[in-house]
């Protein structure tokens, strides 16, 4: 029985960490703020959820399991909220998505809009 559990948790941990790394790479390589937002937002919540469920499988007594459930619920709640607030504030302050069709027009807009 526990062999299956270890395999499952190992698999979940593997996928979760792969997602986290892909989120990190997405953060670096994507051209514009909103695409990076997207990359991080998605992989964060899913990757964290995966790893935490993987850990839940490994946990022995109930208290640890309960704490892990709380951490999972908390991350699932605040992850999307922070992304939402971040996007709203960014849009509010004039960071415009870089639309691909007129690249050069957006080039000069890009450097004026990026505040710093």
């Amino acid at each position: 029985m526990d062999i299956i559990i270890t395999i499952c948790s190992g698999f979940l941990l593997l996928v979760g960490s792969f997602l986290c790394i892909s989120g990190g790479i997405g953060l670096l390589r994507f051209p514009d703020f909103y695409t990076r937002m997207h990359a991080v937002g998605v992989t964060d919540t899913l990757g964290a959820g995966m790893i935490l469920v993987g850990l839940m499988m490994l946990s022995t007594d109930f208290l640890v399991f309960a704490k892990l459930v709380m951490v999972l619920l908390f991350t699932l709640l605040i992850g999307p909220t922070t992304s939402h607030v971040l996007a709203k504030a960014a849009f509010h302050n004039g960071v415009r998505p870089k639309d691909s069709n007129n690249l050069e027009q957006s080039k000069e807009k890009e450097n004026t809009s990026s505040i710093l």
């Binding site: 953060l27 790893i51 892990l68 505040i115």
Partner: peptide, 21 residues
């Protein structure tokens, strides 16, 4: 931009949560 940095802090925070667990 400033918001990239806030995004990095946010991602860094969630990663630390996972690291500690």
């Amino acid at each position: 931009t400033l918001y990239d940095r806030i995004l990095a802090v946010n991602m860094f925070g969630t990663k630390t949560v996972l690291l500690i667990s």
